[in-house]
Design a protein around this nucleic acid. Sequence first.
RNA 1: GGAGAAAUGGCAGAGUGGUCGAAUGCACCGGUCUUGAAAACCGGCGUACCGCGAGGUACCGGGGGUUCGAAUCCCUCUUUCUCCGCCA
Length: 433
Amino acid sequence: MLTVNYIRENTALIRERLGKRGFRLMDKIDEAITLDDQRKVNQNESDRLLAENNKASKEIGALFKQGKRDEATGIQQKVAENKERIKTLKEEKDKIDHDLREVLYLIPNIPHESVPAGQSDEDNEVFKTGYESLPVLDAAANLPHWELAKKYDIIDFEAGVKITGAGFPLFKGKGAQLKRALINFFLYEASEAAYLEVMPPLMVNEDSARGTGQLPDKEGQMYYTGQPKGEEGRLVDDFYLIPTAEVPITNIYRDVIVNESDFPIRLCGHTPCFRREVGSYGKDVRGLNRVHQFDKVEIVQIAHPDTSYDTLNEMLNHVEGLLQKLELPYRILRLCGGDLGFTSALTYDFEVYSAAQQKWLEVSSVSNFLTFQANRLKLRFRNADGKMQLAHTLNGSALALARIVACLLENHQSPEGIKIPKALQAYTRFEQI
RNA sequence: GGAGAAAUGGCAGAGUGGUCGAAUGCACCGGUCUUGAAAACCGGCGUACCGCGAGGUACCGGGGGUUCGAAUCCCUCUUUCUCCGCCA
């Protein structure tokens, strides 16, 4: 979330930039400032009364020692009155804090100046294309991946339905091996680019989900394991299955003060990702196009605010390199305000062209969150002036597996079989499916 | 799952009702000394909020309570350790 001070100092800019998102709750901006004003008035009075009582308590102690009980009793009365008032102020403060937080949760991140205004994914801007011309498949080898999966017996969608339900595919044989190879390939590429590999927990608590902004914004997107237990119905296993490794990995740095010399902090990790995807339907969810569980290698950086956009470009180049090595036709989109995630200031999506489906599939999303996550995470560093400052967080998929598998199968199919790109053969140990 | 012990600043660790935002040591930063370094010595060294400032307030795992006054007493939750049980 944004800090109130930032909102105070940049009201005009915020209004203008949030306009690009089609943000409708502009009155929340003034509301936040008003609530913050109330907070200050409240604290002023409450601090003054607390100071009075602290002082009085010391006097009472001294008087007791001197045996002057009567004098002490008089002061005690005053203290008791103050305490009543302090209690009321505290209740008011809790309410104000709560309301302020709720308001701040409703205000999304401020889009970067380069973000195009727009309503939906149709307004996204093609930032770069990575192909000469879009591939056209031979009539002899022009199957969508769900048919290829059946033909070569490498993904069993029906078995997944039986075991769990729709959107939980079972990978078999070379299909499973291809996935494992891709994960390894992505992880090694990330390691070579100086990302520290981590294997985080796959379930996170509420604080973590809040830290990276999944809560309260995307609550319905996550699988939740909480259960009431006992007679009072106290919650146990109050966890969320991660929708992306961004959540556990970025939260490593929740409540952490890093050294300025530690920048840039680069982390990567492979995890399955779990998404409920409520409201999805039709051919968008066919095969691997949209599933509830998929594997992904995520790259995360904690960066210095002065250089975070350079960091974003560096991450962009990294992802682009992966797609080139996989010999897939891709394009990079700069998301418009309306399609931009709530927490992001600038996002580039990578799409790969699925030749058999003749459509673009999103395989990566690379974003700079500026201080939006760091503020919730309390992720800070001491700057050159010795002052505490919020760091910037960034992350990107490098890459998401399911759709990459779909595109590899479709684009590299031939009458003889599915060709494995050269760069991947060292990991698959086979050249063809 | 059962029984017991514990949680204090970057780390170690003292503190069992007032003079404690907290001793001491280490680490760290600045200085003296030194050709340089080390050692020694001197000084500094938590975070957030309010205030133009002086200064004030809050925080000793989280939350609540007792008290004029809580790191210290009580309740509760969480986590860690030890023992027993179960288990990949």
